[in-house]
């Protein structure tokens, strides 16, 4: 019997691989999948009072969510802000990744460190630095006043959606740079030369060859920027004010002082559903669009 098992083990890569994966998968099921399924379950329950929950199935919380203009507008604003952030970050980071992938020959490692270092510095502190810069008595205002360019602090920058967009675009820059760089760096340079050889200008070559081939990086960057930023809590709280408030604020209140877990669960589930569907649509559309161009 033992010998039989031993033989089976030796023969099967599947068994060996899953043995090694056991802790990771147990963790995934217990700490990620089950809690999320439970959260979805809770979205169908009802909070009666502070400590009591009615566990009978109802879709009322979803109806409630879509009947509250505050919640739907926060959801819409979250998606809108993340959308702009993703677009701005991609657009501004692409030329940098392009430059490092195709023009930098020496000290590439140094540039790579430069690209990824901000990724590791405290997220909270990176956001905090923008509070210092954009604040009413912050770097920009006090700097401009010291230079005598303005006499009163500019108030429209801080505590607004604009502040949230600027701060998030900065905070997530590394997440755009790295996937873009990796996908651009992989492109065989002779493909670009072949396109030039076949009569295309630099710009045409970019649209017909380089950009389509860098799509995995573009889509990767969209995924890792758009999804997390929709749920970002720190930035809107720190620099957004009332105008820049996002859905995460309500989720936090439902789990905190309001104490309505089913309602919080509904908000979380809707947020996840929204990002998942939008990401899929955007990735698909980007792919289709470039296929037509090429």
């Amino acid at each position: 019997m033992w010998r039989y098992i031993n033989k089976l083990y030796a023969r099967s890569d599947n068994v060996k691989a899953y043995t090694l994966l056991t802790p990771a998968l147990i963790f995934f099921f217990c700490v990620m999948l089950t809690p999320m399924l439970l959260t979805i379950a809770f979205s169908f329950f009802t909070q009666i009072n502070m400590n009591e929950i009615d566990y009978s199935f109802t879709t009322d919380r979803y109806v409630e969510f879509f009947n509250k203009p505050l919640l739907t507008s926060l959801l819409f604003k979250s998606v809108k802000i993340s959308f702009i952030v993703t677009f701005v970050t991609l657009l501004t980071a692409y030329p940098v990744a392009y430059y490092i992938a195709f023009y930098v020959k020496k000290n590439k490692t140094l540039w790579l460190i430069l690209m990824s270092l901000p990724f590791w510095t405290s997220y909270l502190l990176r956001i905090f630095s923008w509070k210092i810069i954009l604040g009413t008595k912050g770097v920009i205002n006090s700097g401009l006043i010291t230079l005598g360019l303005i006499s009163e602090p500019l108030t429209f920058i801080m505590y607004s959606q604009t502040a949230v967009v600027i701060t998030l675009s900065h905070a997530w820059a590394a997440f755009a740079l790295l996937p873009l760089y990796v996908s651009l760096d992989k492109i065989d340079y002779s493909l670009i030369e072949a396109s030039r050889d076949l009569g295309n200008s630099r710009l045409e070559t970019f649209w017909r060859v380089t950009f389509p081939l860098s799509l995995p990086g573009v889509i990767g960057a969209i995924l890792i920027i758009f999804i997390p930023t929709v749920g970002d809590y720190v930035t809107p709280q720190m620099v957004g004010g009332v105008d820049g408030r996002m859905l995460s604020y309500m989720i936090q209140s439902y789990f905190g002082k309001v104490n309505n877990i089913p309602m919080g669960a509904v908000s979380a589930v809707i947020m996840l559903a929204a990002v998942a569907s939008i990401t899929m649509i955007v990735s698909y559309a980007t792919k289709k669009l470039t296929q037509r161009v090429a």
Binding site: A24, P35, G231, Y233, I251, G264, M271, L272
Partner: peptide, 20 residues
């Protein structure tokens, strides 16, 4: 599956963990 936590808004991970 192993990479997924990296791709999900942290607030949702946090909320699910509270719930369970």
């Amino acid at each position: 599956a192993v990479l997924l936590p990296f791709l999900i808004p942290e607030i949702i991970l946090a909320v699910s963990l509270i719930v369970i």
